[in-house]
Design a protein around this nucleic acid. Structure first.
Lengths: 200, 200
DNA sequence: CGCCTGTTAATTGTTAACATGGTAATGTGA
DNA sequence: TCACATTACCATGTTAACAATTAACAGGCG
């Protein structure tokens, strides 16, 4: 269920997010509604909506009457702390909800894993970063933790601004396979173990 | 620095947020752009912007082409977990940044405390809830943790949907005085202690 | 009788024009 | 030459009209 973006706003939002994660804009850069609207061939409305949304996803900073700027990635110390919070949230979700996950939801997670594999095979680091996070999100939703997803996403998003596990992303993929296998086996302990090995 | 809402969007956003925290809308209720736009005497644009923003603050859930609904407050088990995360974030902010807080920032925190006092004196529980959270936010910003504020806010927001420390809000106020005194004395340990006593 | 399909009313999605505000360049005075 | 006020430009803020989508309902078919 790779959400097919239907509305113009979603397409614009996704496109800008992709470019942000790809590092196309330097941190601190001011983004202009008109410029992006022209580039995408749409009006300023959806671009505006996208700016508000991406601000609250953590990628952009909003300044009234002055537009948005690209946020700086978190500093190393905060990164460590954020990673710890992320582990706690995903662990909590698995502990509380893995047992209740339906087969349908397991299928969704497997589909997310497939998309991650495709991204890894293509070598497109931006796609890998986004699919990586989406895989984890699918697990959380499968565990019935939609409640925590938005806060969790806030924490992860900006980490992506310097996503660079590029070293060996096939290793990263293998870690995710391991996570999925544990999920499929409905083993809470093994899943948490695998998650901890992956989130770092 | 009680942010004076300048744009229509900010006013609309604040107004809707107030009503949400006040419990004016039942959880699951669908909010209509036109209705609110008429009530506030503005066009649908700013209301739309407010919906997107409040969705990402955690109060509303967005459904493409079908508008927004009021989110349900977190269940008791998640509440406990969220409270723990909140404590960790505020503690982390204080540990890393209290020493570097400038006198100006201490003044801002004191101003926030004054506004909380005014709210308590008035007995307006909605205002108390919002000033409570704003006081904590001001501390985090004072400690240079803007980086973590948006995720932190996501966690707190929905808790407000059932803010009910109403029992004795003068006790709550005293707790905040204690926090401020520790902050002013730049005592990291005492501040963390006071925060832990307050966040529960 | 139940299900499917076409229509309709209502709501959100999008657009382009207009209003407002901020920034930076320009010119004036000391 | 520098400080400061003025002004012009450009970007965002807001609006209202128009387009697209949805869900509900009515009619017809199996």
């Amino acid at each position: 269920m790779s959400i097919a973006p239907k509305t113009v706003r979603e397409q614009v939002t996704n496109q800008i997010r992709d470019e942000l994660v790809a590092g196309r804009f330097e941190a601190g850069t001011m983004l202009r509604e008109t410029e992006l609207a022209n580039r995408f061939g749409v009006s300023r409305g959806p671009v505006r909506d996208a700016f508000i949304q991406l601000s609250y996803e953590g990628y952009l900073a909003y300044h009234a009457n002055r537009g948005v700027t690209v946020r700086h990635p978190p500093n190393p110390e905060n990164r460590k702390f954020i990673t710890s919070l992320r582990q706690q949230i995903e662990t909590h979700a698995v502990e509380r909800g893995l047992a209740k996950a339906t087969d349908d939801e397991i299928d969704n997670i497997e589909a997310a894993l497939d998309r991650l594999k495709a991204a890894c095979d293509s070598g497109d680091t931006t796609a890998i970063a986004l699919q990586d996070i989406e895989f984890h999100e699918t697990i959380m939703i499968g565990c019935g933790a939609e409640d925590l997803v938005s806060a969790w996403r806030q924490l992860c998003s900006r980490m992506l601004l310097t996503y660079s596990r590029l070293g060996d992303y096939h290793q990263a993929y293998r870690e995710h396979v391991k996570i999925f296998d544990s999920v499929k086996a409905r083993s809470i302990e093994a899943t948490i173990e695998a998650l901890k090995a992956n989130i770092k």
